[in-house]
């Protein structure tokens, strides 16, 4: 009886409380309004548009008027000759990238941490960051210019040591390597900032104690720096693994040509070509949705793992 009364009271207070709290948050809602409107109009409405993946979209009939097609377009993609190549290429480029561009920034940060010459250290950092500010288009332009087998600088430099430089842009097998190495050149310095910060947070008394015990610089790096970087590194690694199936469109698309398509056609470039070049809206939307769902599953799994590893999850 008493409990019931109490519950009623709470409920009453709750209802009045809600109005009061809504009223109190009024101005805060106003602050969020522009972003909410833009998000609903341009991000949430397209989520409804995904239904065209399950319909045979005819522009004249509109999204709602087009006929349902069920899973036809998904099956069309799964059975097409481009299904495995696009998935394989996406994963190969992705894993290859992670294998190279994940450990390098850590190595760079460890090195940077060992330098005692302040001026040189600063210069080293600034010059390794700089390539990060080159735009994707310019980067790809540089790659094409440099790798030209007749006029390119790489070919000229290799001539001095007597090596003939092949036409790498025309070889399908070389594409992932070109993509990954240039990616490393451009972003390794930048990506090391995070680790350099983590290293600078290490308590200096640890080093002093180790030096007292006779540990060399190398030993100190091995037994202090590396263990201290592990937590940051493992989060970064997990995050990277979560986006294994989503390779950025911009760089791959610019480096693509007829000769390297066998290894350079990834899911995102295929979605673009099917959709906006061949105008197969429903098929393209279906492939996009498939990729999106795979990414979602990966991200949630990764988040779960990181939640298990740490006390809190990434989100």
């Amino acid at each position: 009886m008493k409990g019931k009364q109490k519950a009623l009271q709470v409920k009453k207070r709750g209802a009045r409380g809600i109005v009061e709290r809504l009223n109190k948050s009024k101005s805060l809602y106003l602050l969020m309004l522009p972003s909410i409107v833009i998000f609903v109009l341009f991000t949430y409405i397209p989520m409804y548009g995904i239904v065209i993946a399950f319909k045979t979209y005819k522009p004249a009939l509109g999204i709602a008027g087009s006929k349902w097609a069920g899973l036809t377009y998904f099956k069309q993609y799964f059975n097409s000759y481009q299904f495995w190549p696009t998935i394989k290429n996406t994963i190969v480029i992705s894993l290859y990238s992670i294998a190279v561009t994940f450990p390098l920034p850590i190595a760079l940060a460890l090195m940077c941490n060992q330098m005692t010459a302040k001026r040189f250290k600063k210069f080293f950092q600034v010059s390794t960051y700089l390539p990060h500010f080159i735009s994707t288009v310019v980067m790809c332009g540089m790659i094409i210019l440099f790798t030209s087998p007749r006029n390119g600088i790489i070919a000229h430099l290799l001539k001095y040591v007597g090596i003939e430089f092949p036409n790498v842009m025309g070889q399908a097998s070389a594409f992932p390597t070109i993509y990954v190495l240039t990616e490393a050149w451009q972003h390794v310095g930048w990506d090391s900032i995070l680790y350099i910060a983590a290293l600078s947070a290490i308590d200096p008394t640890l080093y002093e104690a180790a030096t007292m015990d006779g540990a060399s610089k190398f030993k100190r790096m091995l037994h202090i720096d590396i263990p201290m970087l592990l937590p940051t590194a493992s989060i970064m690694f997990i995050l990277r693994m979560g986006s294994v199936m989503s390779v950025g469109f911009e760089k791959v698309y610019l480096l693509q040509n007829n000769l390297n398509q066998k290894t350079s056609e990834i899911i995102s470039t295929y979605v673009y070509k099917m959709g906006l070049i061949s105008n197969q809206y429903s098929l393209s939307a279906a492939i996009g949705l498939f990729n999106n769902i795979v990414n979602l599953v990966l991200l949630l799994t990764v988040n779960l793992i990181s939640a298990k590893l740490q006390d809190t999850s990434l989100i």
Binding site: F42, P46, Y48, G275, A285
Partner: peptide, 14 residues
């Protein structure tokens, strides 16, 4: 939207 988006074609049509 960090986890799920409409994708290229629905966004384009929108």
């Amino acid at each position: 939207p960090m986890f799920f988006t409409g994708g290229l074609i629905p966004t384009y049509m929108n």
